[in-house]
Every structure is written in structure tokens, then in C-alpha cells.
Lab assay of single mutants.
Amino acid sequence: TYYTVKSGDTANKIAAQYGVSVANLRSWNGISGDLIFVGQKLIVKKG
């Protein structure tokens, strides 16, 4: 599943929404920190 980042989103918020850990969200998308951008497409695997 892909999720498009919206204004006000955070890695924590997206992870919680899908029931996954922030560490997994980072791993699936090659993100090292919490910096995400509006319009960015993230791979999300439901927990």
C-alpha cells in the first residue's frame, strides 16, 4: 500500500494510523530520520 504524505502528517502519525512501528515505516522507505515531505509517497504495510 502507498500513502501520500499530507500537510501536518508525521512519521509517528502515519505509523499509528496503519498500526505499524515508525522503525518499520522508515525501513520500508529508506528514511533515516523523521523528515518526510508533503506529496511524498510512502510504502506502508498494514500491521
Rank of each mutant, 00 (worst) to 15 (best):
I14Y: 01
L25H: 00
K13V: 08
T1K: 11
I31N: 05
G8V: 03
D34P: 06
G30W: 07
I31M: 12
G30I: 06
N24F: 08
D9C: 03
L35T: 13
S7K: 13
G19Y: 06
G30A: 10
V20N: 01
K6C: 09
L42V: 06
G19I: 04
G19A: 08
I36V: 11
V22E: 09
V44S: 01
L25Y: 00
A23G: 09
S21D: 09
D9R: 00
Q17F: 13
Y18L: 12
L42I: 09
G33P: 07
G30C: 12
S21Y: 04
V5W: 05
L35N: 14
K41T: 12
D34V: 07
F37V: 11
N29Q: 02
N12A: 15
D34M: 08
V22F: 05
N12R: 14
N12G: 13
K41H: 10
I36N: 02
V20F: 04
V20P: 00
V5R: 00
S27C: 14
V20C: 10
V44C: 03
S27T: 11
G39F: 05
G33H: 08
D9I: 01
I14D: 00
S7E: 15
S7V: 15
K45H: 12
A16E: 13
V20Q: 04
W28S: 02
Y18E: 06
T10S: 08
Y3A: 03
S32D: 14
R26S: 08
G8D: 06
W28Y: 04
N12Y: 15
A11M: 15
V38C: 07
S27G: 08
K46E: 11
Q40K: 05
L25I: 09
K6M: 10
V44F: 05
K6Q: 13
L25M: 04
T1H: 12
Y2I: 11
K41M: 12
V5A: 07
T10E: 05
N12F: 14
G8K: 04
G19P: 00
T10N: 07
A15D: 00
L42W: 02
S21L: 07
D34N: 11
A16T: 10
T1R: 11
Q17V: 11
W28L: 05
L25S: 00
Y18F: 15
Y2M: 09
I43G: 02
R26V: 12
K13R: 10
Y2N: 05
Y2C: 13
I36S: 02
N24C: 15
V38P: 12
F37I: 11
S32F: 11
V5G: 03
Y18K: 03
V22Q: 05
N12H: 14
I43E: 04
I31K: 03
G47L: 13
Y3H: 13
T10D: 08
A23T: 10
S7I: 14
S32A: 12
T1D: 11
K6A: 08
Y2R: 06
N24T: 13
Y2S: 06
K13M: 12
K41I: 15
S27H: 12
L42K: 01
K6H: 07
L25R: 00
A16C: 12
Y18P: 00
G8I: 03
V5D: 01
G39A: 03
G30H: 11
I31L: 15
Y3T: 03
V44P: 01
K41C: 14
L35I: 13
G39Q: 02
L35F: 13
W28E: 02
A11F: 15
I43L: 15
I14T: 01
Q40L: 07
G33S: 09
A11W: 15
V22T: 07
V38W: 05
W28D: 03
N29P: 01
V20G: 02
N12Q: 15
V44M: 05
L35A: 13
V5S: 03
N12K: 14
A16R: 11
W28N: 02
D34Q: 08
I36M: 08
A15S: 07
G33N: 11
Y3P: 00
K46N: 12
K45G: 12
I43M: 10
G8R: 04
K46W: 15
Y18S: 05
Y2D: 04
G47V: 13
S27L: 15
N29T: 02
S27Q: 13
I36H: 02
V22N: 03
K6L: 09
N12V: 15
I36G: 02
V20L: 10
S27M: 14
G39D: 05
S27N: 11
I14H: 00
V22S: 05
L42C: 02
T1M: 13
V22P: 07
G47A: 13
I31V: 07
K13W: 12
K45Y: 15
A15I: 03
N24K: 10
N24S: 11
V22D: 04
L25C: 03
T4R: 07
Q40M: 11
A23F: 07
T10G: 03
I43R: 08
T4C: 11
W28F: 04
S21F: 05
Y3K: 00
I43N: 04
R26T: 10
Y2H: 08
Q40D: 06
S32N: 12
R26W: 09
R26N: 08
